[in-house]
């Protein structure tokens, strides 16, 4: 009896699945890929691959750390170019000491930051702002999303704190995107062009609200590195990678120690195991 119930249930599921599969296949045979999907497939470009400092030997990502000079340059690009629209609200000014700025420099950066920290006027109790301190996070650029959209043609500039981790292959993606603007190809179908947006084949929909930002010599690097578009793109992507995962170096160091320990321990445990079992057949 039990057996036959089981056959019946199985047969029911299979029957419904066959019906579903049949109708889906029929629908798929009739369906055509929409023009926008075709265009996206044809023109979208994959990430350019950069040999980042943290890829380390052979690109395994085991030993490589951050290059503080590069992070400082990247911060300069963020400060001079990106910070007008993109906030960095999960990073604190004090964190900049981790990429090689000294306390006085960071303090200067904090007090000079264009956007001030919201506060309360001690005399009147009204909303006010005050200069940032070491302990403050980078102040948000816009008070809220509506303000951000209003100032940016209804586009929302995302926060940069986690951008490198919230996009697949984030570091390469950021570099590819920021350096990847191109003129619209002559063959690009007119109907798929989007007014008011900018063509960037590295963006998932090909049309991005952000206009091209970088031009050669846009910033003047403190360490004298020539500020080419490529250089700035790499530097700012590196800085944002650090901003998203500031504990990466600590993590890798702890990992190397842990794995060396575990390999020795496992080796010892294996020898001990074989010793214990030496007189047993199994």
């Amino acid at each position: 009896m039990f057996r036959f119930i089981s056959y019946a249930i199985g047969a029911t599921f299979i029957f419904v699945l066959i019906l579903a599969g049949y109708t889906d296949l029929k629908a798929a045979a009739d369906a055509e890929t929409s023009e926008s999907d075709q265009v996206r497939e044809e023109y979208h470009k994959y990430n350019k691959s950069v040999d980042w400092s943290w890829n380390g030997n052979m690109g395994l990502g085991v030993f490589g750390g951050f290059d503080n000079q590069q992070l400082q340059r990247g911060f300069q690009v963020y400060k001079d170019v990106c910070s007008g629209c993109h906030s960095l609200k999960r990073v604190a000014f004090r964190n900049l000491q981790e990429i090689g700025f000294n306390e006085a420099e960071v303090k200067q950066i904090a007090t000079d930051w264009v956007v001030e920290v919201p506060s309360i006027n001690p005399d009147t109790g009204e909303a006010d702002t005050r200069p940032a301190t070491l302990a403050d996070k980078f102040p948000e650029v816009y008070p809220n999303e509506i303000a951000a959209r209003a100032a940016n043609n209804n586009a929302l500039p995302p926060d940069m704190s986690l951008i490198a981790k919230s996009r697949p292959d984030g570091s390469n993606y950021l570099y590819s995107l920021i350096t990847g603007y191109e003129p619209v190809p002559a063959s690009f179908p007119e109907s798929q062009k989007q007014e008011g947006l900018n063509y960037n084949p590295h963006f998932h929909s090909l049309w991005i609200a952000m206009p091209p930002q970088l031009s050669d010599g846009l910033v003047e690097y403190a360490d004298g590195t020539p500020a080419t578009i490529d250089q700035m793109g790499k530097d700012v992507a590196a800085f944002l990678t650090w901003a998203a995962e500031p504990k990466m170096e600590e993590r890798k160091q702890a990992g190397i120690g842990t794995i060396i320990f575990l390999l020795i321990f496992t080796g010892l445990a294996y020898i001990a195991y074989r010793r214990v079992w030496a007189d047993q057949k199994h």
Binding site: I264, F265, L268, A269, I271, A272, R275
Partner: peptide, 8 residues
């Protein structure tokens, strides 16, 4: 080896 494994 047992002592070493346990200690480690």
């Amino acid at each position: 080896i047992y002592v070493a494994t346990a200690a480690f």
